[in-house]
Design a protein around this nucleic acid. Structure first.
Length: 590
RNA sequence: GACUCCGUAGCUCAGCUGGAUAGAGCGCUCGCCUUCUAAGCGAGUGGUCGCAGGUUCAAAUCCUGCCGGGGUCGCCA
């Protein structure tokens, strides 16, 4: 559904064209001077420069054309050539009703919907997730929700790290602890037991144990390397162990992701594309793209136009093993071959430090013709740092596990809810826990998503579990308050009716509602969830101001009351829809 | 050294396809619960937009150089 801003832009664009100028100058935005105007158009000044004309004169012509538009109350030229627009109360009323009744809460689908794979999560087998994993999880999940909402066909894939040196560490360390297991008997012909010989706790212990030994002892490291090579070469016992490691890990990962409302369509991993690697490597060789260097097979991906040094892709290392360059390439091939419909775009929501890696992989994929390079996008993000500007560590110097962060947020939310004492006495324990979880998830997801994607940010536990100010719980609170007002009004027999906007607070609220679609499309185009966060926060603020300034359910005049209830309902609808895209659900009470 | 991200209020950050007195939150100071959830609202406090040039009628925004910080730069992923 077209917004007022879009309709005005179209009208202004047509006016520019009518005087022989480009329609793009007609871009109309919310005014940054609410006391002067509802909307503004600044295009006359840029247009005047190009046309060599007087900007005020052009602005005057555009304003004159806009004055007769049905939505427009007034159109005036100010300063060097700003066009200030006021829309009529009737136009705002109609718009509010449209938002309230629209399945997309006033937004429009993207014009260029695409089949899009989103690769995010960054989880590894046997390694518990830490706070650094929060970003990829919530940014990726929000993008998948957002893109789906706007019409893209999305396939999400966790793309587990299950094929590297860590597997060698695990296998060898387990062999040291339990050498008698059948998995280590090269002569065993199977079948292997269905029950895993290790638990997630075992894995959490074995990995750091082995990793530390390997760092200190080169021979120990070599053993792990050798085990990886054997596993990759197909040693059955090792493969069977890998299957157990993955299954046990995925079960644990689903708990942490599930808490945060993060989900994936595919739980594939690097190991799933192993069968494609030999052929892929061969094709790079026969195409003349791969060459030998220092015992390894590499692919040169540098271009003449490069300003920076571009190291080659490591296709096969000097020990005959393959790393994540190769598995990433094989994964692209696998997705193109097996997913229906075939992907038109792939987004990788991974730490910005991987930028060079992805650029290399994308170039190599383009060279071999797996997919056009430009269809692969790295959605990088900054690291989560401690107060000292370095990657976050706990006071004890260790990393903070995501599971612990989740638990801390839940604990804070529980305390806060009890202190507020607004839940009904008869609410059961399960329901209270569910509300606490909703508040905790809102706090965690919003505090991450509100940050601009690219910048590093300082992790501050107090801020992540804070419930006041620009936080997820503030938004939930606003939404819950709307629901509460609507519920009580309905109980008293008062229902929303026709909208008739008059007051300043009402106008401001509708103008804010009008910006939803633009915020969504902007978030999608830039892959920046914080744009949506900003919109929803401003909407919650506008509602809170409206709520404070005017009676809603308690308004004595029946017509005004019905109108304000309808406005409140439009806000509820858009807030719930928008928060849903952030992976945040709204309780009935809190 | 090359490339990349960043430098805006005491703190954490928006704004950067150039536009009108640079915005939030936290903090601090006031005021507001006998009417709809005060996790709230209103008012105030607080800024040489890293520095220096340049382009422009107009620069936090574009260009150049410098200073400061994070990150990456072929066999862990």
């Amino acid at each position: 559904m077209a917004s007022l801003a879009q309709e005005l832009s179209a009208a202004a664009g047509a006016a520019f064209e009518a005087v022989g100028l480009e329609a793009r100058f007609g871009d109309v935005r919310r005014s940054d001077k609410p006391e002067l105007a509802d909307f503004q158009c600044n295009g006359a000044m840029a247009a005047a420069k190009l046309a060599g004309r007087n900007p005020r004169e052009i602005a005057g012509e555009i304003a004159a054309a806009l004055k007769v538009h049905p939505l427009v109350l007034s159109a005036e030229v100010a300063g060097p050539g700003f066009i200030n627009l006021r829309v009529s109360d009737g136009a705002l009323s109609t718009r509010a009703e449209a938002v309230r009744g629209d399945a997309m809460a006033g937004a429009e689908k993207a014009a260029d919907a695409q089949v899009t794979v989103i690769d995010f999560g960054g989880a590894n087998v046997a390694k518990p997730m830490h706070v650094g994993h929060l970003r990829s999880a919530v940014i990726g999940d929000t993008l998948q929700r957002l893109l789906r909402f706007l019409g893209d066909t999305v396939i999400s894939d966790v793309h587990l790290g299950d094929w590297g040196l860590q597997m060698g560490h695990l296998v060898t360390e387990l062999e040291d602890e339990q050498p008698g297991l059948v998995y280590f008997d090269a002569g065993f012909t199977g079948p292997y037991p269905a029950q895993s010989p290790v638990t997630i706790e075992d894995l959490g212990r074995l990995y750091p144990q082995a990793s530390n030994k390997a760092k200190a002892d080169e021979a120990r490291n070599e053993r792990s390397q050798k085990a990886v090579a054997e596993m990759q070469a197909g040693r059955a016992g090792y493969r069977a162990l890998l299957r157990h490691f993955i299954d046990v890990s995925v079960e644990a990962l689903k708990v942490d992701y599930g808490f945060l409302n993060v989900s994936f369509d595919l739980w594939k991993g690097e190991s799933d594309v192993d069968h494609l690697i030999a052929d892929l490597v061969e094709r790079f060789k026969t195409a003349g793209l791969a060459e030998q260097s220092d015992g390894a097979w590499i692919v040169h991906v540098a271009k003449e136009s490069d300003k920076k040094e571009m190291p080659p892709v490591m296709l096969v290392n000097s020990r005959g093993g393959t790393g994540y360059h190769t598995t990433d390439l094989a994964t692209i091939e696998d997705r193109m071959a097996t997913l229906k419909p075939a992907p038109e775009r792939m987004l990788y929501v991974v730490d910005q430090r991987q930028a060079l890696h992805f650029e290399q992989v994308y170039r190599a994929a383009g060279l071999l013709g797996l997919i056009e390079e430009a269809r692969l996008e790295h959605i990088g993000f900054g690291t989560v740092n401690g107060p000292d500007g370095k990657p976050f560590k706990t006071r004890e110097g260790g990393v903070l596990r995501l599971a612990d962060l989740n638990a801390m947020a839940l604990d804070e939310a529980t305390k806060k809810i009890e202190a507020a004492g607004k839940l009904p006495e008869d609410m059961g324990e399960d329901e209270r826990l569910a509300v606490a979880r909703q508040v905790a998830v809102a706090a965690l997801r919003f505090s991450d998503l509100m940050n601009t994607r690219m910048t590093n940010y300082v992790f501050d536990l107090d801020r992540f579990t804070s419930f006041e100010g620009k936080t997820g719980p503030y938004l939930l609170y606003a939404a819950v308050r709307v629901k509460s007002v609507l519920r009580k009004a309905a109980e008293a027999g008062h229902l929303p009716g026709a909208v008739s906007v008059h007051e300043e607070a009402e106008r401001a609220l509708v103008l804010q509602l009008d910006g939803f679609g633009g915020a969504l499309l902007g978030s999608r185009e830039k892959r920046m969830p914080h744009i949506l966060c900003e919109h929803l926060y401003s909407l919650a603020q506008a509602f809170s101001a409206f709520y404070g300034a005017l009676p809603i359910a308690s308004e004595p005049d029946a017509g005004k009351r019905a109108s304000r209830l309808a406005l409140a309902d439009a806000v509820r609808h858009q807030l719930e829809t928008g928060l849903g895209l952030l992976g945040i659900t709204v309780p009935e009470r809190m």
